[in-house]
Design a binder for these strands. Structure first.
Length: 200
DNA sequence: GGTGCGATTGCA
DNA sequence: GCAATCGCACCA
């Protein structure tokens, strides 16, 4: 018996809400050979709207960021530094550019961890061939169920976006507090604020 | 057609 | 601390 996939309605919401709700979910990847990789997501970042200075969508629509402008429910995968792939889940309505970057997960083999966006992409065999791919299709999806309680969620500023001025300081990164697979500075993770019902 | 650089990682 | 290594945004 296989678990249900999260459907498009899950993704077609505000990126901050989707980001928080992705924590604890299981990322699933079916490789060409048929192998199924599954791992629990423990760290994400939201990139939300045309005014988010840190977002790839900030300069407007381009060839690279086009998937971010689609309706939620597809992947946005790009190459950074010519070396590493980064995997995003596109969120919100069509023409509203927003996405959630998957930054860390428990490793698919259940042994180590996929700590950091580049390592996560590699561990799950995700590259640009999945850019624009459906998250309700056969290759890549999230399982329904398995969320985490607000008390387990930590919020911090995003990593590696210092160029974004005030937007760099906004609390748009969500983590499972104290999880060993978290990337980023330990001090930042320690200082992660607990989410409050009021902030939802 | 040329130039600059990045939502990172691994190694010196 | 810094090189790797490529797509692509932007300008001429």
């Amino acid at each position: 018996m296989t678990k249900r996939r999260l459907d498009p309605s899950f993704y077609r919401r505000d990126a901050l809400e989707v980001a928080r709700d992705i924590l604890g979910r299981t990322l699933c990847r079916r490789l060409a050979g048929g192998t199924l990789l599954r791992g629990r997501i423990v760290e994400v970042e939201a990139y939300s709207g045309p005014r988010d200075r840190a977002s790839h969508a900030w300069p407007g629509r381009t060839a690279r960021n086009a998937p971010m402008f689609a309706a939620g429910g597809i992947a946005y995968v790009y190459l950074v530094y010519g070396v590493h792939h980064c995997v995003n889940v596109v969120t919100g309505a069509r023409d509203h550019p927003a996405a959630v970057l998957l930054r860390a997960a428990e490793s698919p083999d259940g042994l180590g961890s996929a700590s950091g966006p580049g390592r996560l992409a590699r561990a799950f065999g995700i590259d640009r061939s999945l850019d624009g791919a459906s998250l309700t299709g056969p290759d890549l999806w999230l399982e329904a169920g398995d969320g985490v309680a607000d008390s387990e969620v930590g919020v911090t500023r995003r990593i590696g976006v210092d160029y974004a001025g005030a937007w760099a300081r906004r609390r748009m990164r969500f983590v499972i507090r104290g999880h060993p697979a978290l990337s980023g500075p330990r001090a930042l993770n320690r200082r992660a604020r607990t989410i409050t019902p009021r902030s939802r």
